[in-house]
Write a protein that binds this DNA or RNA. Structure first.
Length: 315
DNA sequence: GGCTAGTCGTCCTTTTCCGA
DNA sequence: TCGGAAAAGGACGACTAGCC
């Protein structure tokens, strides 16, 4: 129950009821919440979660099996999540051997987080089959609770796998359904951006560039309102490609101004060519790699490359 | 039928008091 | 000092009756 989760998290933060409640609710009311005698409002839970340095979902997660020994497992999960976040997967096999996920006492939320760690490990190891199995198990366990950042991470692992297999339409359904569910939520701002970014990439793969433009504008607006940033460079590249498609050369010039990637170099060439600055275009085009294998999955960029090659490649 | 005011019950919260 | 119990107030939604 929520009260028990709050109490445990408060103890972990070495706070008294007085200290946790101060300025949010009365100390006595916090006592009632922890006992489970009352159901606090979401507003109160948000404020408490902020002071407890945890997410609202952490407090609202399914906790029927929550026991003190679970706290030890919880701490271990957080430890491994920190390591994985810093690209250190060396401790995961040891964690797997403990088979915490098979214990009856473990909550479905923690179980989901364990499977997510395993999925990330197998992704790092390049074992796609095990990765997708673990991601599916993670989603299955985490779907028992309110959607949280871990659910979104597991979903993105799964969708990346499906996109690789060409199942873009199915991925779009999954992503758009999830986005619709989390959009009204006041938290998960980064999660919203992550999902929206993947949706934009899917529409790009489906060559629906006008939809991409609409969603990119929505993404930028969301970033501005939430004051959260995610994959700015990647979005800049996508935006530049769409601008090229739309023949919006003013925008394209702004976006390729600091050409860092091969894709942006090609787009800069295209922009120079369209503006009649052929000599500069030729110079830039010489620096673009001649291997076009990476463009075979990007018809828009392949078209741009072929057009430039035909027009100026021989100059 | 639609709008408004009054009533009632529930939920959320606070204050006060008390015990460990 | 910390935490629990009881009582009470305020806000809000559901329901009903009266009026146009």
């Amino acid at each position: 129950m929520i009260g028990q989760r709050i109490k445990e998290t408060r103890h972990r933060n070495n706070l008294t009821q007085e200290e946790l409640a101060d300025g949010i609710i009365s100390r006595t009311y916090l006592s009632l919440i922890e006992k489970g005698s009352v159901q606090p409002s979401t507003n109160v839970l948000i404020k408490l979660s902020e002071r407890l340095n945890c997410s609202l979902n952490d407090l609202m997660s399914e906790t029927s099996n929550f026991r003190y020994n679970d706290v030890e497992v919880f701490r271990e999960i957080v430890f491994h999540e920190y390591k994985v976040e810093h690209n250190d997967f060396s401790t995961i096999p040891e964690l797997m051997n403990k088979e915490y996920e098979k214990a009856d006492e473990i909550s479905s939320a923690d179980c989901g987080r364990l499977h997510l760690l395993y999925a990330k490990y197998y992704r790092h190891e390049g074992d796609a089959l095990q990765m997708i199995r673990q991601a599916d198990q993670s989603l299955s366990k985490l779907s028992n609770n309110v959607i949280n950042q871990f659910y979104i991470d597991a979903l993105l692992i799964k969708t990346a796998y499906l996109v690789e297999r060409g199942e873009v339409t199915e991925v779009l359904d999954l992503l758009e359904d999830t986005y619709a569910m989390i959009y009204p939520m006041n938290e998960l701002n980064l999660g919203k951006l992550k999902i929206l970014f993947e949706i934009i990439e899917c529409y790009y793969r489906k060559e629906q560039y006008f939809t991409c433009r609409r969603l990119i504008d929505k993404y930028v607006d969301l970033e501005r309102r939430m004051q959260v940033h995610y994959k700015e460079k990647e979005l800049g590249v996508l935006s530049a490609k769409v601008a090229a498609f739309e023949n919006d050369f003013e925008m394209l010039e702004r976006l390729v101004d600091q050409s860092e990637t091969e894709e942006l170099i090609l787009l800069k060439c295209y922009n120079l060519y369209k503006k009649g600055r052929i000599r500069e275009c030729v110079e830039y085009f010489k620096s673009y790699p001649k291997n076009t294998d990476e463009l075979k999955d990007d018809p828009l960029m392949l078209d741009i490359y072929n057009e430039l090659k035909d027009k100026i490649g021989t100059l």
